[in-house]
Structures are given as C-alpha cells and as structure tokens.
Design a binder for these strands. Sequence first.
DNA 1: CTGAAAGCGCTTACAG
DNA 2: CTGAAAGCGCTTACAG
Lengths: 355, 355
Amino acid sequence: MPSSPKNKGKRPPTLADVGRAAGVSAMAVSAVLNGSNSSVRISEETQRRIRKAATELNYRPNIAARALVNRRMNTIGTFIVVEGNELNHYFLEVFNGIIEGTTKFKQNVTVFTLETWSDAKAQLERAFDGRIDGMILIAPVITNEFSKGLDPNMPCVSLHANADIDGLVNLESDEEKGAYDMVKLLTEKGHRRIMHFSGPRGLIGVERRITGYRRALKEAGVEPDEELLKSMAYSDIEARDVMKNWLRDNPRDALPDAIFCANDSMALGCIEALAAKDIRVPEDISVCGFDDTLVARVTVPTLTTVRQPLREMGMEAVSILMSQIDEKDDDEQGKSRTIVYPTEIVERKSVGERE
Amino acid sequence: MPSSPKNKGKRPPTLADVGRAAGVSAMAVSAVLNGSNSSVRISEETQRRIRKAATELNYRPNIAARALVNRRMNTIGTFIVVEGNELNHYFLEVFNGIIEGTTKFKQNVTVFTLETWSDAKAQLERAFDGRIDGMILIAPVITNEFSKGLDPNMPCVSLHANADIDGLVNLESDEEKGAYDMVKLLTEKGHRRIMHFSGPRGLIGVERRITGYRRALKEAGVEPDEELLKSMAYSDIEARDVMKNWLRDNPRDALPDAIFCANDSMALGCIEALAAKDIRVPEDISVCGFDDTLVARVTVPTLTTVRQPLREMGMEAVSILMSQIDEKDDDEQGKSRTIVYPTEIVERKSVGERE
DNA sequence: CTGAAAGCGCTTACAG
DNA sequence: CTGAAAGCGCTTACAG
C-alpha cells in the first residue's frame, strides 16, 4: 500500500500526446497551437484536427519548457522595500498601474519584497534565475553598492529612484513644482507659518520638495523657519508621533497656520494627532498631503494634496520595460533616461482660508 | 551591419561551464550548489573549488530548466478580481500577509487579476501552464461554473470564498459573530435605530453579517426595520452615494442613531456624505465598519470596527497551501475544509454613547 | 566517491 | 507542405 506507483497518466498531456492523438508530429502541433513564425503552413483540415485533439486532451503548454528555449517567461518582477512591515498606499496606487499595464501586455507580475535597499544584492539575485524578463524598482534608494547587485543584462525601469542612477530608465514626477504649487496655494490662502513634514533628508525627492517649499515661501515674503521643517520616515505613525510631541512641547498659540506633509499617509497621521487634541482641520489648521492616494479622497476631511499620476506611471513603467525587453539584443545605448511627469494640485477639504 | 552575430558569450554560464572551470562534471556542480538529496558526497576540497568557480563565473541556476525536471516553480499565484478598477484595502491587508508567508517559505508570489469571477475559466488557464505550484483565491465568488475552470491537480486555498465550496480549503472569519458583537455594542451604548449598509445580497458573508445584525437587534428588543437595511457593492463610493441620497430623501430627524457598515471603506464613504451635510460623527450619529484595515486607524474620527485578522489569514493561507503542495502526491482526501478565525471588536472614536 | 546517459517539454533550424 | 534531430539547462537514476 505505501509507495504506490506514481500517479500514472496524471501527468499533463504534452505536445507529443496531442500529436499522437491527431496523427501528426509534435512540431506540427506546436506550429498551429502556438502560432510560431516558422514558414510552416498546415492544411485547414489538419489544423482543425489538431485543435480538436488539444481541447479534448485539455492540453496546456508547459511554460518552463518553453521558457527554456525561448529565454522568455512573460513575467516581470516588481521590487519594493516593505517599510514598517507593510506595503502602503503609494505601493497600492503604483501597483494598480502595473497590473493595468501587464494585463494589457499579457504579462504576469511577480512581487519581490526586499528588507532594505542597501544590501539588496543577495535578495536581488533570487530574481536573476530567468524567472522574470525585466524588473521594475519601486521607489528604490539606489546606491553604488545597490547598482552592483543589478544584472546589466536585465532590463530595468525605476519609479522615483531616490538617487542618481546610471544605466536605467527612471520615471519620476516634478516634485519640486508640486511642492512649490502647494505651498503657494497655502500662502495665497493667507497662511504664513507653514510647517513641512518631510521625508528623510538626503533623498533626492525629499530635497526637491523642500526646495519647492522654500521657494514658494520666499516668493510670498516668508522667511523659511528651520524650526518648522521636520524630517522623518515617510510614515503615518512617525508623522503622528512627531505631531503629538510637538503639541506636547509647544503652547497652543504657537500652532502653525498649515502643515504641508510629504505624503498623504503622513497627513493623516498628523490629522490624527491634531484630532486627539481637539484641533480641527481645516478650521484651526490646514493640512495637506502629497500623492493623491486612495485615502486622500476617502478620509474625513478629504485631503487637499499634490497629485502624482502614480497609476499612470506604473502603467508606463510596464510599457517602457516591454520595449526594452523586446529590443534587448539590439543596441544597448540610450538606456539611461529620466521621464518626468507633471504634478497637479487637487483641492479638497483639508485646507481652508486664513482669517 | 544588420543581423550581427548574436551576443556571443553573453549567454549566462551553465552548470557545465562551472564544471569545466572547476574540472568536474556538471552533475557534481549541481550536487554541491543545489544541495540535492542524492547520496553524493564530494570532497571538501572539490566543493571549495566548485564554489569558487561558480562565484567567479557569476553562475545562477536557470529556473526554467530546473522547473522542467522538478515540476516545481516555487511560486504561488494569488487571484483577485479588481473591483471598480482598483485593488483595495482589503487586498492590501491580505496581500501583506501573503507576502509575509511567502517570504518565510522562500516562495515567490505572482498576482493574477481577473475581471470577474463568473467566467473565469479562460483567465484562470493562464496560470495552469506550470508557472505556479498552487493558488490562493482572494474573496472569490465560487459558482459551479467557476469550479469547472479550476484544475483539480492544482492545490488551492481560498480566503472568504463567498459560496459553498467543494474540494478546497477555505479560510474565513466568524462574520456573524463579528456583526452580532458590533450591533450588540451599539445597542449597549443606547442606540436603537441602527442602519446596516450591507454588501450585495446572496453572498454568504453578506448574509451572515445581516443575520448577526438582526440577532443582536432582536436580543436588544428592537424589531429589525427593513427600511434600515441597505445593500450595495462593497464600495466607499456606493456607500457615499447611498448615504447622500438617503439624506436628500429623508428629514433630518429621521436620522438613525447609528450605521453599521459592512466594511471600513463603506464607513468612510458614509462619513464623507454625512460630513457634507454637517452631520458629525460620533456626536450626531455613530458609524462603524468591518475589517480593521489601515484606514480605520488613520481617519478622523478613527473607526470603531470589527477586526478580522486579514493579515494573519493571508499568512496562514500560504502556510496551508505549502503543505498541500508538498503532499500533493499523497492522499487527496481531506482537502475540503473550512477554517474560521475569530473576529474582534476594536473600539475607537466613531461610535459614541446615545443621550 | 564520481561520471555518462537519459529525459523533462518545448522550439528552431534543417532535410526531405 | 511536413517530419526527424538537436538542443535549451537542469536533475535523477544508474554504472563504474
């Protein structure tokens, strides 16, 4: 009773099986079922017979065998660092776009999560065994160290690469202008003391937003106050805690007029801490975010925010990657490139007029 | 200049290449690098030499070749229907758990999005070409039609399968008790006229929540009023619109004491519509959700909700799937099974006391 | 303890 | 217009 003969006949049917059933060679079956570009013409009648046999046997091509000869898996890998142990809204938006793109191109997506960008070499290698044809890096922090972990033969597109990059296509948005426009809106609505909750200093995107923030302030005749610039991780929890501590350490009348947060989740964290002290948004203070993720529309109050076309960027990343993959054997040149998407202010309820 | 000789030498190194470099057979390399269970013992010295050659050549196993012989891709597929064109918070939570699980088991995840569960046969087949070893269905609506699309040899676990299932493991939570507990809490806080925004009638989970809702009402001596039960898609937008219309069509003093929403997003949609009419939560009306997704904690007011351990369920789904995959050749029996997770009330700010 | 052979399921030249 | 052969890169028996 133990070790029974392994499931005989359970093995899925192969091309040869179908061929046998239809009275032709496996090669003929391959040609009609998988429409290869070979010069083979098979008679209508034979084709019909082959297709019939295939459906009857419930034939399904074996992707591993095919990939072995084609060197093409028709799947792309997305790489993301899981911060604070969770995938966030930014990821959700971008991923929605990636899904849309891969569906269009009939590709599969596999998701690789990294613990950190800094020593990603070992983690990256999991993907370099032919299982994906190209990779999308989501908001990577690309260091020299990291670049070394990359495979030069693997087509690669990044979104919001937070450092200078070399040899890959990067999609980003005009973050400085987004920040500038938002802070300008704030000043136009009469706000003067404007706090900025930024991401971690040093990252390109973070610095760009700070630059935009300062520029708008200066143009409105407000001298940037370093006390009002708080840097932290891009996290709602951190923003909440920073806000909470600030409220503990400062008198109520020191409250700024507005807070410009570097992403929507941080804005929510902020609002949460404010609400705990019964400070109302936007009546007592205005708060705005960045990204225009799902939550911005759905929270109360709805969030005034800087929209980056994250979803579109995800879609485009796939589309660009696909052309890279297809042209891989051709010239390698012109690979390095940056595409900048426009940002746009979305006015909702969390920003009010001053006075 | 056209058709240049294809990138010679660019082809990644194979086991044979490494073997040649180390002066051994490919088989020996395979044995030491991929620690097979074959009885092969290779001398320490040779092993060192092989490893050295492998790193020098930057050897990487080819997964397609390996999969072809092993019939194992070490990747699992997750299947989800993209409602209203976006992956939602429920997905994000569950997927976080799946990621955690697959990381632990060193598996990859690929995400398949379906347009609908009803005629999923063709869409499902994309996955039945050996690219995944098992599948996780996220909140599927399993009909007979759908079951026929499944491959009986493919290990399969579902989360919140919203129908009776046959031949697969289903993970779900005790939704009836969750609903009951929540409505009971509401009645204990003095609420009597309690509205329920449910999902689409007919789905098992929806009916269970309705049952729990009614039971708690009756126990509190409140006769369920069918006028207060509104069914709709599980969507914040629908909930917002239903609420908006209700507010338009009913006098202010007809406002219920509380609204029990079938998920967090719907609760947010509700609150949004209420806020537009300056109806405050929880001062004027209490609102609660279901799921305890990321947004519940972060919106204002924070949401009182029924927690389902979505993340844990995602993790467990992977773990169960892995054992199914490993035991596939063994007995097929006992495959069909349901595991019910407890729900739990999380009290936050959106529910207040009456009077 | 190590190597030569066969085979996983497919596709791509190459002959007829 | 169609078939026989070789090979993609690996692993698993099987000999030595």
